[in-house]
Amino acid sequence: MKKLTIALAGNPNAGKSSVFNVLTGSRQHVGNWPGKTVEKKEGHFQKDGYEITVIDLPGTYSLTAFSPEEVIARDFIIDEKPDVVVIILDSANLERNLYLAVQVLELGARGIAVLNMIDIADSRSIKINKEQLSKLVGIPVVTTVASKGEGISDLMDCIMNIANEVTK
């Protein structure tokens, strides 16, 4: 079976855990990052002939050397070279959340932007033009409400598209 590694990055409170839980269901493993007292969550799922490993990176606002969490997140992207980094963004606080996204992309990672909790943005009449966002940043963009499972199949499709591209 073809293997694929995806990493989840995002600010604390952006709904990273919800996305992680709906993607991996019950197949999760919680441990520590080697040599660090920071929790590492890893999960698996299978789709279209791929065995997909999902790594939940520590929730951070940035990727500087300021805290162990940030160093862990960026080291993982540099050293393990995940096939896709799914960047979870809180749609209602897009501007602040994009700072991490920019840094992930500067690392040269292949990214997917997830506009999560889009329902809350909607309820505050915040409208996000996702096609425009995708064009300007140069990565696919999907909208989700992960806690209710909405938009997850779009995200799956997006991941599988990239999978097919990567392993072509």
Partner: peptide, 11 residues
């Protein structure tokens, strides 16, 4: 980011 947000977000 600020200019990006101006392009894509209507608040």
């Amino acid at each position: 980011i600020n200019s990006l947000v101006k392009e894509v977000v209507m608040k």
